[in-house]
Design a protein around this nucleic acid. Structure first.
Lengths: 245, 245
DNA sequence: TTCGTCAATATCGTTTGACGATTTTATCGG
DNA sequence: CCGATAAAATCGTCAAACGATATTGACGAA
């Protein structure tokens, strides 16, 4: 039961006297939403690292909320797979080994293909086309900027736009519950530039097919995108995955 | 074992007339798991009906737990889509209209087909075959018994067996997060006997294909099963769905 | 009667404090 | 250095309280 080799302490992980408050959107409605926002954002920015142990006293201080609200939020995040809860041992940021990553891809792929098909079928108005075009433009810009958090968020927004356009509310509910964000955050830290470029370039054809209203082509573009991601996975060395003893 | 300890409800928490404690498995580990168990079970048995308003004071009394633990649990159930939370208005058992039901089927179908394919591919040992055979036998018996809760639970266990056999942990995590149980509980109250029979008979071919190790056939059997469910949906009158006024 | 206004009530969101249970760590003797 | 015990840290749960918001019901006017 060795501690997974997550000794990669983020830039500002010192919590003893540092006690830096976590950045959080000012328009947070409820305290518990604030936690979910801070943690998911923190994963994207790298403040939180997959596998990291989350301590309740620390988080309550840094977020400025009570323990009850924090625990409510952690339960929510646990249901979404973003954190895992161990009785009497606390919450950990989710961590995926190679097998889990491949299984995640297998599970997400049919959902993403469905989302793309639905989006293509519903992309009939100029407004819809404009929305997809803006999302892909943002994603493209973010990819070139090299800002990891910006890229991950733009990518998430592209998916959101696609799902929204599709109009299937259940799909919109389920897809974020897959641990894609976690997977992306983990991959992003270890893949090469060419691999990152290959990933980013996969979204172009998807957007193009959706805008063209070609469901069949959109489906295929997503499939190709996933195959590319699997290829990247295969190229990655084993030692970047947790030992999972 | 700790049943007596749990029952230490102080005199101040006297039950109102008609306030029956909810049945809960004695081996419940944590208080918050107890709530989730009680509510999902209650939906199957009909104690809770879709759309029902859940009051915190009532639930804390009937479950014998504190408000904090209850709220943690409600957050978890909300993430799973079983209940919906409205700020300052409380929790409601989820409710699906016709559109939501059809969208649910569209979302779940590719996941169920994947699960069936994986199960068929992994059904190579006698033990695996025995497990599926037992699950389908239980389901068949429950279907004939006419006990609604028993049927819904056996059906859930059949799915669990299939998913377990497939070995994809992410799929095992995501499928229960779709609101199938909710959908089934709603349908079960309004469908005719022939419709119920049609639904129950759909599982036989799935199990058969899995046991035969024929992934292609298992996939197709699931597809047929979903088409049958859509047919049932189309036959149901509109007035059984919430008015949404 | 019916409708809108306003106070009373009920419920929710959140905080604070406390206690036992369990894990983790630190200490000490071999 | 290693294992056993004591101390500390952390988690799970409960209880009580307060303001914020929603719902309910009474009241008066058209």
């Amino acid at each position: 039961m060795t501690k997974a080799a997550v000794k990669l302490t983020p830039a500002s992980a010192a919590q003893k006297p540092g006690d830096k408050p976590l950045p959080v959107a000012a328009d947070s409605e409820s305290a518990t939403d604030k936690v979910a926002e801070a943690i998911t954002q923190g994963i994207r920015t790298g403040i939180f690292v997959p596998g990291q142990h989350l301590l309740e006293p620390d988080l309550t201080r840094r977020l400025g909320i009570s323990r009850g609200s924090l625990r409510e939020s952690l339960k929510h995040l646990a249901a979404a797979g973003i954190v895992t809860l161990n009785r009497y041992r606390g919450a950990y940021i989710g961590l995926l080994d190679r097998t889990a990553s491949l299984q995640l891809l297998d599970t997400l792929e049919p959902l993403a293909r469905l989302a793309a098909r639905l989006a293509a079928e519903n992309c009939t108005t100029p407004a819809a086309r404009a929305q997809i075009e803006q999302a892909i433009a943002d994603l493209d810009r973010a990819a070139r900027s090299g800002n990891r958090a910006h890229y991950l968020e733009s990518r998430r927004r592209f998916y959101d736009a696609m799902i929204d356009l599709g109009g299937n509310r259940e799909l919109a509910r389920v897809i974020p519950l897959s641990r894609t964000d976690l997977f992306r955050a983990q991959i992003e830290t270890v893949q090469s530039d060419t691999q990152r470029k290959r990933h980013a370039s996969g979204y172009g054809p998807i957007a193009k097919a959706i805008i063209a209203g070609d469901a069949k082509k959109a489906d295929l573009a997503v499939k190709k995108h996933f195959d590319g991601t699997r290829k990247t996975m295969a190229e990655l060395p084993e030692n970047i995955f947790p030992s999972m003893t």
